[in-house]
């Protein structure tokens, strides 16, 4: 097997392109998710994918991508709305929603003992990437970059202090909803090949590692994107040669980076 033999296969080319598009996205979104302490929120979103597919199956939608995305967007908005109104702490509300949606998904998909048909979505299947999905991802990348250029300062203000943001005439609810919808779109479009069980790790780990060693926003973003792309590409190549699922390999690399940066950050008091 030669060094670049993996580029001969179409599915590897698609996977490679997908990783080139999605890892910077994960890096950027991750920074804000970690800042806003939304790790649990994105995790719940990932779980809702199962329900999205189930809903698609029930209504006979051909492309379950569509039902997944629609459901996740509704789910994210609902979650935002309720967690800002209910007195109980946010993690409780999210937990309730997450468990409820995953239970619905499991109940519908396991009807007739057929769940094994969908088990690939738990660990991800890199063969499932199609050119169409690559276009979706590219559009999302452009939207996210645009959103970041226009709205980053407002988003940061909201994440620092809601009252402060309001006093500056920033529509807090709008910003939060936009961000949630964007997260939902990204999670849904990559979940089929990353897998429900680990997608959150990909969102959180690069940003968390970066936070360990960064001193300002610019560094925070730079390292997050760097770590995300690095573990994504290396993970894909290693998984190809060693014959293991791609998602977990990427997460293992990202975790190693987290541990090393944690140690460095502690030692240098950042």
């Amino acid at each position: 097997m030669s060094m670049f033999s993996w580029l001969h296969y179409d599915f590897m080319k698609y996977a490679f392109l997908a990783i080139l598009i999605i890892t910077p996205l994960f890096g950027v979104m991750g920074t804000m998710i970690v800042n806003n302490k939304m790790a649990f929120f994105s995790d719940a979103l990932g779980h809702s994918a199962l329900t999205g597919i189930a809903v698609g199956v029930v209504f006979g939608v051909n492309d379950t991508n569509i039902s997944m995305v629609v459901f996740a967007v509704v789910f994210a908005l609902l979650l935002n709305k309720i967690s800002s109104k209910v007195a109980a702490s946010t993690d409780t509300v999210i937990s309730v929603f997450s468990s409820f949606s995953i239970a619905i998904g499991l109940a519908i998909l396991s009807k007739g003992g057929n769940f094994s048909k969908y088990s690939s979505i738990l660990v991800g299947d890199i063969l499932s990437i199609t050119p169409l999905e690559l276009w979706y991802l590219l559009v999302i990348l452009l939207v996210t970059v645009l959103f970041w250029l226009i709205g980053f300062n407002k988003l940061l203000a909201v994440s620092l202090n809601r009252t402060l943001a309001k006093s500056r005439h920033i529509s807090v609810a709008w910003m939060e909803n936009l961000f949630a919808v964007l997260t939902a779109l990204i999670v849904m479009l990559s979940i089929k090949w990353v897998g429900i069980l680990i997608i959150n790790a990909l969102l959180i780990l690069p940003a968390a590692s970066s936070r360990n060693i960064s001193e300002n926003m610019r560094e925070y973003h730079f390292f997050s994107i760097l770590f995300s792309m690095f573990s994504g590409n290396l993970g894909l190549i290693i998984s190809y040669y060693v014959n293991v699922a791609t998602g977990p390999t990427i997460v293992i690399l990202a975790s190693i980076i987290y541990f090393i940066t944690y140690w460095w950050g502690r030692r240098n008091h950042i």
């Binding site: 599915f11 048909k117 063969l127």
Partner: peptide, 9 residues
Amino acid sequence: DYQLTPKDM
């Protein structure tokens, strides 16, 4: 419900 892996391909 067997899933082809890249190695299978």
